[in-house]
Design a binder for these strands. Structure first.
Lengths: 249, 249
DNA sequence: AGATATTTGTTCGTATGTATT
DNA sequence: TAATACATACGAACAAATATC
């Protein structure tokens, strides 16, 4: 038997779609809902909480307050999706199999859409890894900055699905345990090639040459995957070896 | 000030990650949680409801019952993500920009992994659109069956991210209002080419020729996009024209 | 099969916090 | 400042589901 609160959740969702409610529109108050659904406050609140965690509504207290339909924030959508992958173990190849094919599209989709300000943003992020890193934490920071170059493209991409997917993949690279371990290893080649390709990419974007943008980004991704995978094997070997090593003293 | 129930939600999430709880493991009971967090029952229940909505836990009543860590079901992850795109208007090109680049990878990733039974499944789905459709509802059904061909590939794909993304795109094609409208239009070319490419694909999969599989699937997607886009313009024109037409009688 | 114990699910009444007027 | 309207939180009781004996 489905729970009463879940029934209310579904009913409220239907109410939103049927009445074509838009972000900002208000739902009935808790008191009204208790009457409409003949359910107690607690039950109604659980139903609203479900919608709130989905990002579909936000609630405000005080006069004129209540539950308001909301645009799901990208961050929330990303963390909800990240939950799905939490118990699967993701490999570098899993991530780059998508990046190799999608990042070129992403870059191509912004050709001719960059303002002077956008170019400055790209150039600014590149200055962070202008010089080779001197210590480990600096190297770690540079890796994250390198990713933010791609986040600028994500912001400008007109395709919401492509943009979100690439953004999510960047989130995995930023947050996954495996990736943190990889970033902790020194990797001058990764710094060198990342810098190299992004310089080339910036030029191609300025020339507004879509084929070149596509080609450069693809090469960039293929190269990055190879370098990351090399480190992945090291990290995984360490992981396999360490329990033994500890036991052995 | 952040809500008490949200604090509890975060604390419970942290508890799961820190104790490395895996699917099947139990969380403390409501009663214990009220004591541990010095919060009322309703507050605890709202926190648990948030985790339940995310698909991170399921709850069971009775002795030995409680909240159990769960693997997020793919369906739930998909519908949570679909919420994000609910208020964005997605175009055919948005969807196919990803499909053109990912479906070839998907197909390539299953080469050499198909059992006799899998081949039968593929062949069975193809029989549904063996003959040209005679009426509109039959045509609509065939379109959905055509998509289920790709769902077989999704099931076999070893890359969880690629598999999920392609699955999600199929979900959009199945559920989006725009796509339903498109499927309602007669389109013999779509039937013809879909059938054609899937026959070819089946052959290439049997020969285990990865380059061919990739090439055929890409052509299939490029062709499908063109046909779908042609219908998209018709549907959108209708949509723009219809208010006028109604008013005019 | 039926009684019982355990645990979540639901209800109601009340009190507190917060933002608007 | 005070009054008002709304969500948020507390606490006790009851209902429903389910495993065990």
């Amino acid at each position: 038997m489905t729970k009463r609160s879940d029934q209310v959740t579904d009913a409220l969702k239907q109410l939103i779609t049927e009445h074509k409610l838009k972000p900002g529109d208000r739902l009935p108050q808790e008191k009204e809902l208790t009457e409409q659904f003949a359910a107690a406050k607690g039950t109604i609140r659980e139903a609203l909480k479900a919608l709130e965690t989905q990002g579909l509504i936000i609630t405000r207290t005080g006069p004129g307050g209540g539950a308001f339909v909301a645009d799901v924030p990208p961050d929330r959508a990303m963390s909800l999706l990240a939950n799905y992958f939490y118990f699967k173990d993701i490999t570098i190849h899993d991530i780059y199999q998508l990046r190799v094919n999608l990042e070129p599209e992403l870059a191509a989709s912004v050709v001719g859409r960059l303002s002077e300000d956008d170019f400055r943003r790209l150039q600014t992020t590149m200055t962070i890894y202008d010089a080779p890193p001197t210590n480990q934490s600096e190297e770690h920071a540079q890796r994250l900055a390198e990713l933010s170059f791609h986040e600028v493209l994500v912001d400008l991409c007109p395709n919401p699905i492509l943009s979100f997917t690439c953004h999510f993949l960047l989130g995995l690279l930023k947050n996954l345990r495996l990736c943190h371990d990889i970033y902790d290893l020194p990797n001058p080649a990764l710094w060198e090639t990342g810098r190299h390709y992004q310089m080339q990419l910036l030029g191609a974007l300025k020339r507004e040459s879509e084929p070149e943008v596509r080609r450069i980004m693809r090469e960039h991704m293929v190269r990055a995957e190879a370098l990351m995978q090399a480190q992945e094997t090291i990290v995984l070997d360490q992981f396999l070896a360490s329990p033994r090593a500890r036991k052995g003293g």
